[in-house]
């Protein structure tokens, strides 16, 4: 009862490629529809890229955690908390640089908390991060309960906003500092996951923990680091969000966890771990943002976005279920 031997030396198994990357297909379809069918699509694309960069940070962080087979539902409020910290420290020290560092440190701490509870104590990541989410949410809301929490000094506020608006290439509509930094991070992580020993360990931890342990890999440590990285990335997102709005907003974290998970799953990151790359996250990100943009342009209410993402999620699951059955 021998399985067919797969010799991928010469030809590429196109069918398999397609099935593995159904998100690419969806993205392609969306782009075609957008470019040829929707008015102003190309014109608004740069702003899509800029907005995507923020959510991209959250999704990338979450993606890292998901590859190891875990999850983090507190991403939204880690970002929110970081935004609050940014403003707080900015008010206290007047230095944006210190504020940013403080925010990133706060994010790392959040990551340490999550990582500790999940990997060291062993609480299920789902409920562990729902619980920590309350802590982050509470802290965030405590400061922004009035609606937003802005720098006291107007000049500080301007400094803050300048970060987001800063255009690396003058005149370019989408080459902002934010986009640049996110792109760099994205490429960096792509590189780390593929070319470093740690990156490989991340995949092994998600694919078969026992095999990893047996081979001498410290899987708990590997997973812990993904949580810390996620925390830092969320914090960076929070800094940019604060910058964009000139302060920390009240409802910033709301619904972001669902969004981030949707991006990852639709993009092709598996819940069970061990599979998926930053490219998948990117595809999921663009799928979601392009759909939002298209819906906007066609003057459809925002609620249809939720509807679409929900349907897409389930569709992706079903496609997955039936294609993996065929393999077996």
């Amino acid at each position: 009862m021998e399985k067919k031997q797969v010799t991928a030396l010469g030809g590429v198994n196109y069918r398999k490629l397609l099935v593995d990357n159904n998100s690419a297909v969806i993205l392609l379809i969306l782009l075609v529809v957008g470019v040829f069918g929707i008015d102003k699509f190309i014109k608004t694309f740069p702003s899509v890229v800029v907005q995507a960069s923020l959510y991209g940070l959250l999704a990338v962080g979450l993606g890292l955690v998901m590859i190891t087979g875990n999850i983090d539902l507190s991403v939204g409020y880690q970002a929110g908390l970081a935004a609050v910290v940014t403003v707080m420290v900015l008010n206290a020290t007047g230095s944006l640089a210190i504020a940013v560092v403080a925010a990133l440190a706060a994010g790392a701490l959040c990551g340490v908390l999550n990582g500790f509870v999940v990997t060291q104590i062993g609480v299920s990541p789902l409920i562990a991060t729902i619980a920590t989410n309350y802590i982050f949410k509470g802290l965030t809301y405590a400061k922004t309960s009035t609606g937003s929490y802005s720098p006291t000094d107007n000049s500080l506020k301007d400094t803050l906003k300048a970060l987001y608006d800063f255009k690396v290439v003058d005149g370019s509509k989408f080459m902002t500092l934010t986009v640049l930094i996110v792109a760099v991070i994205f490429i960096l992580l792509l590189f780390v996951l593929r070319k470093t020993r740690y990156g490989n360990s991340v995949y092994i931890t998600g694919d078969n923990v026992e095999a990893g342990e047996y081979a001498g890999i410290h899987t708990k440590r590997v997973a812990m680091i993904t949580y810390i990285l996620c925390g830092i990335l969320c914090a960076l997102a929070g800094v940019f969000m604060a910058s964009r709005s000139g302060g920390a907003q009240y409802t910033q974290g709301d619904g972001m966890d669902v969004l981030a998970v949707s991006i990852c799953v639709i993009g092709g990151i598996k819940m069970t771990g061990g599979k998926g790359t930053m490219v998948h996250v990117l595809m999921g990100l663009f799928i979601m943002r392009i759909i939002t943009n298209i819906l906007n342009l066609v003057r459809v209410e925002a609620t249809y976005m939720d509807l679409t993402s929900g349907i897409l999620l389930i569709a992706v699951l079903i496609i997955d279920r039936f294609t993996s059955r065929k393999k077996a």
């Binding site: 995949y203 092994i204 694919d207 078969n208 081979a215 061990g274």
Partner: peptide
Amino acid sequence: IAPQLDVAKNLFIG
């Protein structure tokens, strides 16, 4: 075996 990784990475796991 780590089923989603390739043969080479399984051979040299860790």
